[in-house]
Amino acid sequence: MAEHDTTLTISAHGLSRAFGTQTVVNAINLELRRGEVLGFLGPNGAGKTTTMQMLTGNLAPSSGSISICGIDLLDHPVAAKAKIGYLPETPPLYRDLKVDEYLVLAARLHRVPKAGQRDAVDSAKHRCGLNDVGGKLIGALSKGFQQRVGIAQAIVHGPDVVILDEPTVGLDPNQIREIRSLIRELGGKHSVILSTHILPEVEAVCDRVQIMHHGNLVYSDSITALQQFHGSRTLLLGLRRPPPVQELAAVPGIATVEPVSETLFSIQSVADHDPTDTLTRLAAEKNWGLYQLNPAQASIEDVFANLTRHEENT
């Protein structure tokens, strides 16, 4: 472990937390390297928020150790917290303050030296697209902008680790896209932990993913491995003038065909065969009127079903 000390920004071992007799987080290990975006995935109630509260020093773990850039969070909370930026599930916004005032306060609370405060606030505002709203009251901003203020608050002091708890919940699709690209950008400079229960979000922005289920870490690997694991082997095929189902099923690489409606088919392909090319070629040749061909989004439930099945098998 010692040789990783310079690149490891978070290293948590055997982290557990119980409320009374109920164990919410059970002996999870977590490591984060510099410049990495880690997706923390799990259904609601999996223990993601509890874990994040422990990583940010807001909740003491029942057992286990956390070190932030080599500083033990439990022994030296103040020094360790200086390296963390945290956006909780509900952004901690003072609605009576203006955006500028609020960010200056955040910078001061995080011990940014007085001389650098102006620059720190300006750069955080710039990165989060808040340049035009500096003089507005936070309470008067839309939800998307409030979320950005929350993120700006978490990065204003240039922390090594940024921890974001469900940053895109309650936003409209445009805002979600903006926030995601912002997170992607943050990954360049900081290490980011992002919790979510939306699988495509993790695929869109993360390098690595850890999945929690009932307080246990059930999966931890890179994004590409996850994609292979849950295998986007289900395709949705839409044809205006579809041939009989048997004809489709006979296409090489296709295992089963299930009609969803008159013109829409759910297709399972054979492992290691991508029938996409064949299908588009055939559709053009035979004039099927192809209007849709896309991989069906695997839902997080599917992944969990897969994972738990996988666990039972081993």
């Binding site: 917290k81 200086a82 955040a106």
Partner: peptide
Amino acid sequence: VMLTSAPI
């Protein structure tokens, strides 16, 4: 939370 997660 803003105060408790700050280095204070």
